[in-house]
């Protein structure tokens, strides 16, 4: 399934992700890592679950609002099976919990403050993602 190169949208979207990360540090003093924020509202929830729930509500609400108001269309294409979503979700949840973060927590916030743990984590998960996609598409799927 081909997707078009979208340099401007990706640069602008990335800048907004960065802006949100900076704002969350300035206001709440927290790392904007989606795994940590989500884990904090899953029972037994963290003591400070209310701002986490508000963050999640904003994150879910904004794209829906952009579409509802006709501001933009959000391309959404799924080239994998439902089974891949079930297995992938489970593996992502386990890995991000043991690894202490995901693309947003390690890849953006941790890398931005040059955390050695986040640099290692990001290098490792980027490598295994490249390897997995290669195996799925060109070894198993060949």
């Amino acid at each position: 399934m081909e997707t078009a190169f979208t340099p401007y949208a990706s640069l602008i979207g990335g800048a907004l992700i960065g802006l949100a990360s900076v704002m969350l540090m300035a206001s709440h003093g927290k790392i904007a890592g989606m795994t940590g924020i989500l884990a904090g509202v899953i029972p037994p929830a963290a003591d400070d679950w209310s701002w986490r729930l508000a963050f999640l509500a904003g994150a879910i609400g904004a794209p829906a609002l952009l579409v509802a108001l006709g501001v933009m269309e959000i391309p959404f294409q799924v080239p994998v099976s439902t089974a891949a979503m079930v297995v992938g979700g489970l593996v992502v949840g386990v890995g991000a919990t043991y690894g202490g973060g995901c693309t947003s927590g390690h890849g953006v916030c941790g890398m931005a403050r040059l955390s050695p743990r986040s640099i290692v984590a990001t290098a490792v998960f980027m490598a295994t993602t490249f390897a997995t996609v290669y195996v799925v598409r060109h070894v198993i799927g060949a």
Partner: peptide
């Protein structure tokens, strides 16, 4: 954990 996370992402 990070290695496993990448497999799930892929």
């Amino acid at each position: 954990g990070s290695a496993v996370f990448g497999i799930g992402w892929g």
